[in-house]
Design a protein around this nucleic acid. Structure first.
Lengths: 128, 128
DNA sequence: TTGATATATCGATGGTTGTCAATCTCCCGA
DNA sequence: TCGGGAGATTGACAACCATCGATATATCAA
């Protein structure tokens, strides 16, 4: 837990495909000294992926499964959701960079992206 | 339905366990060994508060302000939002237990709830 | 090839949310 | 006591989202 976060506003780390935060040279002077609008937008996308109880449970199930990977069929039942809905949520989590998708044969196995949640968590407590 | 959830400041000091808690005697067989539906609902409410770029910027501005507290009038301008909208976002953040509201005279000063973000972050990376 | 199965995608729908204009409440100074 | 200003609340509206049924795609087995 190095927690290399500076006292400055959040610096995005890698580990997940992110838009490069450079190229904000001539921003129309929004609230400076704080999160820029573009950064906030990107961050909000991640948190939006966590802002649904079923997606949180998906992450929990995936992370606590024996092999740390789960297929869609293992999720539909405990969540009490239809298969298309589960697939939809999984896509959102993959797009947010939180889950990996590994299709082997007919089955698709999902696993946590290592460090993705920690990186997100680090942006929440920059000045511990 | 109105569903006025946060009638009370959620303190929730302990990190939400990703394991099975207690008292699941008669639950309709949810996913075992994972987040229960009720826990997921509560957690999702918090993340929902963070799932908006303007609310993230509010938190950033408040935390980086000199006195670590800000009044509504200081937020409306940098966010380019109307006063009712800012007030709306602030209410969501207060209800989520992330901001404190301190009304002194005509002005209302908002400040971070100490440890609230850290607690939330801890639920994302329980193995710190 | 054909059939079966697992998953993804599409279209529709009801509920939720962010925003604003208008209004209300409350506190303070004159 | 009254008036002005800060902030909260209300109502309305458009955009978004979670969910489902139906369908498409892909892979394996016979």
């Amino acid at each position: 837990m190095p927690a290399p976060v500076a006292a400055e506003p959040i610096e995005h780390t890698s580990a997940v495909p992110l838009e490069k935060p450079d190229a904000l040279c001539c921003a129309p002077a929004p609230g400076q000294g704080s999160l820029l609008a573009a950064e906030a937008e990107t961050l909000a996308l991640r948190f939006k992926a966590l802002a649904d109880p079923n997606r949180l449970r998906i992450l929990s199930i995936v992370s606590s499964s024996p092999e740390a990977e789960t297929c869609v069929c293992d999720l539909s039942e405990p969540l009490n959701l239809g298969q298309p809905t589960v697939s939809h949520h999984l896509k959102i989590l993959v797009d947010a960079g939180l889950l990996n998708r590994d299709k082997r044969g007919v089955w698709a196995y999902y696993s946590l992206v290592p460090g993705a949640l920690d990186t997100l968590a680090a942006t929440m407590a920059p000045r511990v």
